[in-house]
Computed example of a mutant assay.
Amino acid sequence: MSNPFLIGENMTGGYGRGADILHDCTISVAKGEIAVIVGPNGAGKSTAMKAVFGMLNLHKGSVRLDGEDITKLAPQARVAKGMGFVPQTQNIFTSMTVEENLEMGAFIRTDDFSNTLSQVYDLFPILKEKRYQAAGELSGGQRQQVAVGRALMTKPKLLMLDEPTAGVSPIVMDELFDRIIEVARSGISILMVEQNARQALEIADKGYVLVQGRNRFTDSGKALLADPEVRKSFLGG
């Protein structure tokens, strides 16, 4: 892909002064595309996403968003450029209501965000129903909807999700994936780290299999699902 919307290219680095976790890792996403990062535990999947978001030190490589080099920008500056990031844990304010959580997502907005709030409620109807309830009282799947909805309130061009289906039931996972597909169809690029590799690759335009912080396989989601070596080593046969 000659002009991806996002590309983290030849990323090498780690946390603080520790050893490098990523080694010449490259991740790219086109406009409106769903890209999924999968691999065994400790492969550097979440680290690769955090590198794209500016949360660790890159000793080598670069990150470009819509053609602009953002390698030196802090995470909050990347949000202003159009990145939305949903961490795996501690991703909502439990004592605040659902609606207050969503409003917090609009903290960088200076315009009227009521239309975006309506769009989030259209995407996740249960959140509208529970908008005055404390977010900490919700189920795990509903909390994830709040976290994704809050990220969408920034009107991101790229939405990054770290293990969005962790700890939820298969039914809730399918529902979350359906909503993620809807978001991508609206033109927002999706970069997602997932342990549920088979299900994630089924909805992915592109998949990355990382092993020990390096690219092992890169192809379309369908091609990776059909690859005998990928199936045997990473998808349970």
Rank of each mutant, 00 (worst) to 15 (best):
V172E: 09
A51S: 15
F113P: 01
F177E: 09
S186C: 06
T71Q: 07
G42E: 08
F5C: 08
K81G: 08
S169R: 11
E9N: 15
S220L: 11
T89H: 13
R131A: 10
A135C: 10
M1L: 13
A135I: 06
V79Q: 10
M192A: 00
A151F: 07
Q195C: 08
T94A: 06
V209I: 15
F53S: 13
I171T: 11
G237H: 09
T94Y: 00
H59P: 02
R179C: 11
K31T: 12
M153P: 15
G237M: 05
V120D: 00
V29F: 00
T218R: 07
N91G: 10
Y208K: 12
A200M: 08
R150V: 14
L102R: 04
I180F: 06
I92V: 14
C25A: 15
S62A: 14
L225M: 10
V120S: 06
S186Y: 04
V230G: 09
G140V: 02
A35L: 08
T165V: 13
D205T: 01
G44H: 10
K130Q: 15
H23K: 15
A184D: 00
V172F: 03
Q195K: 04
L127F: 04
D112G: 04
E103V: 07
G84Y: 04
E175I: 03
G67A: 08
G136K: 13
M192G: 00
D227P: 10
A77G: 05
K72V: 05
G221N: 07
G14A: 00
I27P: 01
I37M: 05
R64K: 15
D66V: 03
E129A: 11
G18F: 14
L102C: 07
E100Y: 06
E202S: 14
T26G: 07
G18D: 12
N115L: 08
R64L: 10
G221V: 02
N101W: 03
G18M: 12
L58M: 10
G18K: 12
V98H: 03
V63Y: 03
I7E: 15
D66F: 04
D205S: 03
H59M: 01
A200I: 09
M173D: 02
V183F: 07
K128W: 00
I181S: 02
A147R: 01
I37K: 02
I190G: 04
V120L: 04
F93Q: 08
A77W: 04
T94R: 00
S186M: 11
R78D: 04
I181N: 01
V120T: 11
R216Y: 14
L65R: 07
D111V: 05
